[in-house]
Amino acid sequence: MKLSFEVLEALDAIDRTGTFAEAAETLHRVPSSLSYLVQKLESDLETPLFDRSGRRAKFTHAGRVVVEEGRRLLQGAEELERKVQRVKQGWEAELRICIDEILPFDAIWPHVRAFYEASIDTRLHLSREVLGGTWDALITRRADLVVGAAGDPPNVPNLAFRSIGSMRHVFVTSPDHPLAQLPEPLTMETVARYRGAVIRDTSRELLPRTVGAAATQDCISLPTLASKLAAHIEGLAVGTLPECLATEPIARGELVARQLIGMRDVTHFYLAWREDETGQAMRWWLDRLDLPDLVDRFIGYRYA
């Protein structure tokens, strides 16, 4: 490789100070050593980096390109050195955080902002998973930390988890749907005669879960909670929704809530991670998110 960080630092210093002599003083070197570095690079690249026709050498266009692009390389090298030191001190190079689809994604931004304001170099990767996909993401190492993992935790080694609250669900239909006219309480057998709407579980290795649908019910599989809500409002399907999400459509007359025998109306959620891989960045996030009422805080953020 013809370029080196040594010569890039020399060119940067020459550009900042204006002369070889001042650059050499800044770098604690003799001017002749800088001249040698520059002339060798010009020879290797077969391109002049300085115009020496005047009393004072000036960068050529090619020299200017080398200086500006070289600064980016120098900055990248400095950042890499800092990251290596932080890894040595127990800070992860990256942290993958997965938020369950049922929680409002916007509620994570204040925490992300605080993380960056703390000048932590760990790179964040944020993602979404659905139902058992949160547990699956942790087990298959697509995520290091999951926020809002639903249902019973799987029995796997080194899995740590904390309860962060629960969420109530209601069974809804459009006002014009046949189920809206039947006397309550409805039974699962009656509901199974009509099309349901479920969010597609994103599990890859764990057995996918289905919530709020009868075993024999014909269902439309949807990618997001928003699309599930829309399907209910359109009268295309029936099913359960988080009570906090259904309240306003019910008040507007777009949906009606129906009592359903045998429906599990509360879901419990967890913060989960692998306790054998807990670095400083993970501990930072756990300190902020390990709260028994985190679900309520996230939901409250949506309506703040």
Rank of each mutant, 00 (worst) to 15 (best):
L182M: 14
A180W: 02
W273H: 10
E184V: 06
V256M: 04
Q181C: 00
T19V: 12
A21D: 11
I97S: 00
T216P: 07
H61A: 05
H232K: 03
F298H: 11
P153D: 12
A21T: 11
M263H: 08
T19Q: 10
A251Y: 11
D44A: 15
S203C: 12
E81P: 00
E6P: 03
A281S: 09
V191E: 05
R96P: 14
D287M: 01
L182C: 11
P175A: 01
H169V: 05
F269T: 01
V170F: 06
I261K: 09
D15I: 00
G212R: 04
L260A: 08
T173R: 09
V170K: 07
L145V: 15
G212S: 06
T210H: 06
S166N: 07
I139A: 09
E205A: 13
E234I: 02
P48Y: 10
S166P: 00
L294Q: 10
R162E: 14
T187F: 03
A160Q: 12
Q89W: 09
P110K: 06
I250F: 03
I261G: 01
D218N: 08
V84C: 07
E117V: 00
V112D: 13
A246N: 04
Y301F: 15
A251P: 02
A226H: 13
S203V: 03
P153Y: 03
G132Q: 04
M282Y: 11
M167D: 14
L138N: 07
I164K: 00
R113N: 12
S163K: 11
P48A: 06
A215E: 14
A281W: 08
R258G: 01
D12M: 11
L41N: 13
H169R: 10
L179D: 07
R209I: 09
P104A: 00
R200G: 08
L291V: 10
R72I: 12
V65P: 05
G300P: 01
A77F: 13
K58D: 02
T19D: 14
T134V: 04
A118C: 06
M167E: 15
V7H: 05
T216W: 11
V238S: 05
R168Q: 15
A180Q: 14
R258W: 01
T17S: 10
S221N: 06
D265R: 13
S203M: 05
E254P: 02
Y194G: 00
D276Y: 01
V211P: 00
T134Q: 13
L49T: 03
L260F: 09
T278K: 14
R195D: 00
Q89V: 02
L159G: 09
Y116P: 05
V38T: 08
H125R: 15
L45M: 12
R209W: 15
Q181R: 14
V66E: 10
E6K: 00
A150H: 04
V67F: 08
D15E: 15
A192Y: 02
R204S: 13
R252F: 12
L37M: 15
A304I: 10
T134P: 04
D176T: 10
